[in-house]
Amino acid sequence: MSAGFGWIGLRNLVGNGEASPRSGSATNAWFTRGLLGLLAGFLVGGAVWLLMLPAQNNIAQAEPVNLALASVDPVLPTSASDTAAARGAGLDGLKISSQTWRRGGLGSKALVTFTVRNDNDYAVKDIEIVCAFTRRDGSHLTDRSRVLADTVGMKSRKTFARVSIGFVNVNADQAKCSLVTARRV
């Protein structure tokens, strides 16, 4: 008795209670595939392991790294003209009266909000600030600086909100910003 599937070519797949046309069992096929997968995994793992090994002649010696830190000694004014030049930098009457910081950019950037107070008799612009970031225990992590092109009028204050200072370490817990330079307008 025929099922009538011959017209679409299924007669070879569906029989009248005969055994499947495959010669091997399903367990044997899965076992073979598993062994081939295991072999491929070993080959890939071995290749990665060989690439990760350092070359024998390029092994770095465990020596301490000494970093040279540059420090700038402040130049003290010696005459009245030098004192006027130091005041020309604009920092004598400038100070940061308040500051806060938070993370932005998925936690990798520092956004600082601060208020610059100008007690001078002239306006200043191109204010450069530097922010030092520290860990919770107080150890120093990194410094970031920015130049603000805005102008702060004479005898006034200006709040700069959420200024992007740059990328910071994920361990940074505290920030302390200070003024570096400013130009007299």
Rank of each mutant, 00 (worst) to 15 (best):
A172S: 14
A161G: 05
V152Q: 02
L106W: 02
G9F: 09
L91Q: 07
D143K: 11
L148G: 01
N171I: 00
Q56T: 06
A29S: 10
F133C: 02
S139E: 10
L67T: 11
G107C: 10
L141E: 03
L50I: 06
L76W: 14
G105M: 08
G24A: 09
R162M: 06
S25P: 07
G105C: 07
Q61E: 11
G15W: 03
A175E: 03
R87G: 03
T27R: 13
G17T: 05
D119S: 15
N118I: 04
L141K: 06
R22G: 02
W7K: 14
K125M: 04
P77V: 00
A132K: 11
T32A: 12
R184V: 03
G90P: 05
L10S: 06
I129K: 02
R87T: 03
R162G: 09
T32H: 06
L94T: 03
C131D: 06
M52L: 15
D173Q: 15
F5E: 05
R11I: 00
L35V: 13
C177H: 03
V72G: 02
S98H: 10
C177R: 04
D82V: 10
I96P: 04
T78I: 02
I165P: 01
V72T: 13
I8V: 13
S145F: 11
V65K: 09
G45R: 07
